[in-house]
Design a protein around this nucleic acid. Structure first.
Lengths: 333, 333
DNA sequence: CTGTTAGCGCTTTCAG
DNA sequence: CTGAAAGCGCTAACAG
């Protein structure tokens, strides 16, 4: 990386002003075809590449977006990140990736350092910050899209998954199969998506005119161990249950394992449905009936919404809701 | 994002020069404790945050790193990305994430746009570009670390996985268990890691003084279907085989499925070992003996190497090789 | 300990 | 169609 070639070098080489070179680079303003070609040649010959930094300082736009996720190593956010980056790429933007590890402090740091980097906008996934903490932080950014999180009052772009509809479809599927006693492993009580999914479960039961019982619902850790533990308690207390709706696929897999351990057949003795359609869902025995979330699409749409908002900032707070898709497999045919 | 507060605003507010404010921000040069405090107060009061863009233009350092991967949605690279970002975060750097989709054109574009962004360095994973294409592109960057790819001649930082040692350990494990007739499903012939793993397999056999037969080795697609197909041919042609080393876990799972289909017991009739320790490896029946690659560590070390190189650019081309770790499970006890 | 003078490399006026 | 001047917001290098 010897000496960087600047726009001045190119201008001198061709014998024109820097402005003319700038016009050629940006395809702005009229430049005579001949001059234009000579500039292009010089750029090629000298190996000139404009400095986004200098340009950013002059224009106040960096061509840069911040993407904040809890953890890219989580396949969910990895897919979201892929979709977001793809979309940004096609529009000529680069994206800063920030992981928060679910740590509010780190989320704050991310938002702040992205501000220092003067990103043109931020896509923030599953923010764990309180409204009060989040609002002032976002106000310092020119544009933001929230994924999987609402923020009342601010007219921000928002992209959500319809958790309630997903859980309702799953529960309805069980009801259609003749189940009348359906349990729920609801995930962590703080989880927003958990609450929505619980609502969907309840609404399906109400719509079908089926009984609901408090004891048929149980919170659990959102992983395999959580499902394993919770389902034991659930079935011991409620032997009448013939089906169970799980917060997510990992919980459902925990249920599968618990059933295998106690010689309970799925789906004959107990039908099981998950949520998310993770890779594993199709591979366990029996394969899981679940609901699939268009994760890459989620990232793509979020980024598209943000870039559109940046382009014509007239637009207000568009809000998008993506529908999960029911995937029927052997665990609940 | 009303009017941005600048260093000049802070200076005016306190009644000092911009330099003094700058010194406070950067903890550089001596500033009287009192002035210092007044500056800090004003920064807080005004909500000032320095512009990384302006600073980058002045210092020629952006505090920014480019990370190029084939695909973050691939769990392998997602983990690498996580490790790399974590490391960068602890050192105060932000990282640009670029996906190439295995497309050479897009890899070139990524390298070029990262140059425009004036990143301080690049971590490039599994580059698909030829040496001839890659070299001039990298020369334009101040620092680079290559992951999972060598480039002769250039003294770049390089981080590799020891594929050969991994395959050798796996094969040795089978030999220790008494196997004498060991087959190999070698993956695609073009694969560089495939060649290394084949070498490791062969070396283990040679070291143990066991026979090798050409017909015991077979190329295959690096997925479940590939393993399924190849193992049938392999066993039909060589019924004497009591164990098989697979290019990766997916191939091994294909072998498991083929065995299940034909009533062949694993590991009694055939011992099977994989490579990578993907999530699935522990969950199939029987669980796979395999070798685990420290993926997050791979990302972390790569970024650490790059940042160290940036810090004291005196250093030359350090090269790191990470060892896979043998994981013994039921498919080859 | 603090301030002044020059840029960093580009674009935005406004004039030719 | 082309150019000159004035910054964008910050810091390096000197001076006091």
């Amino acid at each position: 990386v010897s000496e960087r070639v600047t726009i001045a070098d190119v201008a001198r080489e061709v014998g024109v002003s820097m402005m003319t070179v700038s016009r050629v680079i940006n395809d702005k303003g009229e430049v005579s075809p001949m001059t234009r070609q000579r500039v292009l040649d010089a750029i090629e010959r000298l190996g000139y590449r404009p400095s986004g930094i200098a340009r950013g300082l002059a224009t106040q736009r960096t061509g840069t977006i911040g993407l904040i996720v809890p953890d890219v190593a989580n396949p969910f956010f990895a897919d979201v990140a892929r979709g977001a980056e793809d979309q940004a790429y096609t529009k000529g933007y680069n994206v800063f990736l920030c992981n928060t590890s679910e740590d509010p402090e780190r989320e704050i740091t991310a938002l702040e350092s992205l501000e220092e980097k003067r990103v043109d906008g931020v896509v923030l996934c599953s923010s764990r910050l309180s409204d009060a903490d989040l609002r002032p932080l976002l106000r310092r950014h020119p544009a933001t899209v929230l994924v999987n999180r609402e923020l009342a009052g601010n007219n921000l772009g928002t992209v959500m998954i319809d958790d309630q509809a997903g859980a309702q479809a799953l529960t309805q599927h069980l009801i259609n199969a003749g189940h009348q006693h359906i349990g729920l492993l609801a995930g962590p009580p703080i989880s927003c998506s958990g609450r929505q999914r619980t609502k969907g479960y309840q609404r399906a039961l109400v719509t079908a005119g089926l009984t609901q019982k408090r004891s048929w619902m149980r919170f659990c850790a959102p992983d395999v161990a959580g499902g394993q533990r919770a389902v034991r308690e659930l079935l011991t207390a409620n032997p009448e249950l013939s089906a169970v709706v799980c917060y997510n696929d990992l919980v459902a897999i925990g249920v599968l394992q618990a059933c295998a351990d106690r010689g309970r057949n799925v789906p004959e003795d107990l039908a099981v449905v998950g949520f998310d359609d993770i890779l594993l869902a199709a591979l366990v025995t029996p394969p899981l009936t679940t609901v699939s979330i268009p994760r890459r699409e989620l990232g793509r749409r979020s980024m598209a919404l943000l870039l559109q908002h940046i382009a014509d900032c007239a637009e207000g707070c568009e809000s998008i809701t993506l529908q999960p898709e029911l995937i029927v497999r052997a665990s609940a045919p």
